[in-house]
């Protein structure tokens, strides 16, 4: 039974003094799944990954990763996983290729195999030309791509990626997405990813957990999560000719309409189950009372809305802080404590 689970976590908790960074979390990730963790800054994502990857001892609780207990068998766990930490961890005094080679050797991979694999990976992340330059001369995004390539040198069955696309431009991000998707689809890898980007979670993850102040507050596929929050999709209608009130009254009677909100300039916002599907019926109902729809827009509920619903805050508000964290990644962890 254990065997079809890549990760099984029960009641895992981490306290830093008075701060409870991770607070009694339970979840399971079956093999081959692309699992996402979404949460605002300081939610406990990195702390959780560090515990699952053996470099931080849980205060209490248990985690089985790749079939081994992280507390009892950390060495075995490390052999089977690959991790991209949140902060940049490339060695600046070495070249990109040397960095990768070093990791290959740490996992005991033979020279010929290493050379071949490193070459392919560097190609994939678009660093072939710069492979023999010192990492100190790389841009932030190049370093990140190198780290993503590095983690695959020993082809682990289970990947932990802590905000892997941080600092990547939109194109590079697409490339990395396609690449990661292929890994789960073709190589049946299990991937555990944390992110701040809703589109990333929505486009990549089979299931998503939303974590806030150390607790999981929602878990499911992006579609399920969206379906679970009240209000669903929003259709904004601009109404001509007939009085908007008539149209509003007619629309409100429809079974799939949850709520109606008149807006400035004669527009109405209609909260419905499923925007694209419900729009034609909405237009028909308006016509029936002599109303004319001059324009309509559909806003599908996104994970962002789910996030705001559960955490009460928009994740974007925190975006600015990320940059400084990235630059200051090397600061001692106990700074100011």
């Amino acid at each position: 039974m254990q065997n079809d689970k890549a990760i099984t976590v029960s009641q895992i908790t981490k306290k830093f003094g008075a701060v409870t960074a991770v607070d009694g979390i339970d979840f399971e990730v079956p093999r081959g799944e692309f699992f996402g963790f979404l949460g605002p800054n300081g939610a406990g994502k990195t702390t959780l990954i560090r515990m699952l990857t053996t470099i931080l001892k849980p205060t209490s609780g248990q985690a089985i990763v790749s079939g081994f207990d992280v507390a009892k068998d950390p060495g075995e766990v490390r052999k089977h996983i690959g991790v991209v930490p949140q902060a940049s961890t490339s060695d600046l005094d070495l070249t990109g290729r040397e960095n990768m080679d070093l990791y290959g050797r740490f996992y005991g991979i033979k020279a010929a195999e290493r050379r071949e694999r490193i070459k392919n990976l560097l190609d994939t992340v678009g660093l072939a030309q710069r492979a023999d330059d010192l990492v100190a001369t790389y841009s932030g995004g190049m370093r990140r791509r190198l780290e993503i390539a590095r983690v695959l040198v020993h082809s682990p069955a289970l990947l932990f990626l802590d905000e892997p696309t941080i600092g990547l431009d939109p194109q590079s991000r697409r490339v990395v997405w396609d690449f990661l998707r292929k890994l789960t689809e073709k190589a049946s890898m299990t991937i555990f990813l944390t992110t701040h980007y809703m589109d990333e979670a929505e486009s990549l993850c089979g299931r998503v957990a939303i974590i806030d102040t150390g607790k999981i507050i929602a878990l499911g596929s992006p579609a399920e999560l969206k379906a679970n929050i009240p209000g669903n999709d929003i259709i904004t209608l601009a109404v001509g000719k007939a009085a908007p009130q008539d149209v509003a009254g007619a629309v409100e009677k429809l079974p799939f309409v949850h709520k109606i909100k008149p807006e400035e300039g004669g527009e109405i916002r209609v909260y419905v189950d499923n925007g694209p599907k419900d729009l034609p019926a909405l237009i028909d109902a308006a016509r029936a009372v002599g109303g004319e729809i001059t324009s309509a827009s559909v806003h599908e509920q996104s994970l962002e809305d789910v996030f705001i619903h559960y955490t009460g805050k928009s994740i974007r508000e925190e975006e600015a802080k990320k940059v400084s964290f990235f630059i200051g990644a090397g600061l001692p962890q106990r700074l100011g404590r």
């Binding site: 990857t53 053996t54 470099i55 060495g75 490390r78 052999k79 996983i81 991790v83 930490p85 902060a87 940049s88 961890t89 490339s90 060695d91 600046l92 990791y103 740490f106 996992y107 005991g108 780290e147 990644a329 090397g330 600061l331 001692p332």
Partner: peptide, 16 residues
């Protein structure tokens, strides 16, 4: 390595 924060990735490997 600790100061630069790159010890994290070495600790994550099977190095004993």
């Amino acid at each position: 390595d600790r100061f630069l924060g790159i010890d994290e990735s070495y600790l994550l490997t099977p190095l004993t």
